[in-house]
């Protein structure tokens, strides 16, 4: 019995807790990509760099606060910085909309042209970010590190395995919950949100109904900016900020959005968690898990790992390919924004 509890605790510690946090970050990212896709109708490759930009602003703000001696111990200063980061990221996106995207919107260019434009923006932003903050890794999580440490957990429960929950993980999940709820409330309950969905559903009819496209597009970029800033900051808070990682993050985020059914926000959020949990389940080394569950003489010799951790990005790719093969419309087809 104890062994079973130990095995479950092991999974909770190494799979469930981290995946909830990582999944939340992916979910926020995928939601941002989905909004752009649903309203502006293109796959925004620059989204990862937009997240990175938001994170950079957060870091600068944190440094500013820290040097001014402002903190909200035991919570990380990042929570204070996020609103600032959201504002500035939104400003950036609105500027990009004005200077870059709007022109193509008006031309009604093919999605693929839009995609290249977004790739151009991606590299422009990447250069900008690295120029300002450099390329080295930055940890900016301060405050109390753990909500519960593995050792404390062991002491309380008397188990051999412990669950540790880092503050950043808990904050990630809570903030995501709040933000996703807010976005869905906005889309489904407010006049403006509904007009966004209407625009996404049927652009011409939305025009006929007196919905102003410029307004819808601006609101969309504002939402996307907020989501990107928060998603990026949470990811950096949890794992440390390395600018080039955000380029690689685009893949699992796209995979999440596609698995969920492109243009479907609920699907995107679920897709984020699907990716995160699959990555964890597939790259987890089950040796100890089986040692608890199997009789001693059956205990495995190797790590019992399906795929080594370096390949975690491959997991999202394989999932993506499977979905494209089996059900190209994604798990939750039909219902867009």
């Amino acid at each position: 019995m104890i062994d079973i509890l130990n095995a479950i605790t092991l999974l909770a510690n190494y799979i469930i807790v981290p995946s909830l946090a990582y999944g939340s970050q992916l979910a926020l990212g995928a939601l941002g990509i989905t909004l752009v896709y649903a309203v502006l109708r293109f796959s925004n490759f620059a989204h990862g760099e937009m997240m990175s930009f938001g994170t950079m602003i957060s870091i600068f703000t944190i440094w500013l606060f820290q040097s001014a001696g402002i903190s909200i111990h035991p919570l990380p200063t990042a929570l204070l910085a996020i609103p600032v980061s959201i504002m500035i990221t939104i400003m950036l996106l609105l500027i990009l909309d004005r200077t870059v995207f709007r022109y193509y919107q008006a031309q009604r260019v093919q999605p693929v042209t839009f995609m290249i434009v977004s790739v151009g923006v991606m590299f422009f932003l990447a250069g900008l970010i690295r120029f300002f903050i450099g390329t080295s890794k930055k940890n900016f999580a301060d405050g109390e590190r753990f909500i519960i440490k593995a050792s404390e957990f062991k002491q309380i429960t008397g188990l051999a395995e412990g669950v540790s929950i880092r503050t950043t993980q808990a904050i990630t999940v809570i903030v995501t919950l709040v933000l996703v709820t807010a976005v869905f409330w906005f889309l489904n309950k407010t006049r403006t949100g509904k007009s966004m969905r209407a625009f996404s559903d049927n652009e011409d009819l939305a025009l006929l109904s007196g919905i102003k496209p410029e307004r819808v597009i601006i609101i969309t970029w504002m939402l996307v900016g907020a989501l990107a800033a928060v998603a990026g900051t949470l990811y950096g808070l949890d794992k440390g900020y390395k600018p080039f990682v955000y380029l690689q993050l685009v893949l699992p985020i796209f995979a999440a959005a596609i698995i969920g059914g492109v243009g479907n926000p609920i699907g995107a959020v679920i897709g984020g968690y699907v990716i995160a949990f699959s990555e964890a389940f597939i790259t987890f080394a089950y040796k100890r898990f089986f040692t608890y569950l199997l009789p001693e003489e059956w205990a495995p010799e190797g790590l019992v790992q399906m795929l080594s951790t370096e390949y975690k990005f491959a997991v999202s790719f394989v999932l993506l390919v499977i979905v494209l093969l089996v059900r190209p419309t994604g798990l939750f087809r039909g219902k867009t924004l």
């Binding site: 006049r191 509904k194 007009s195 969905r197 209407a198 559903d201 049927n202 011409d204 009819l205 939305a206 006929l208 109904s209 007196g210 919905i211 039909g334 219902k335 867009t336 924004l337």
Partner: peptide, 25 residues
Amino acid sequence: GYVPQTNNVFPSMTVLENLEMGGFV
């Protein structure tokens, strides 16, 4: 008021929401 020949509703929105969008102005 104008009802186009095709694509004349917001398919993923509810009937009520369609009406609300009709009265958007």
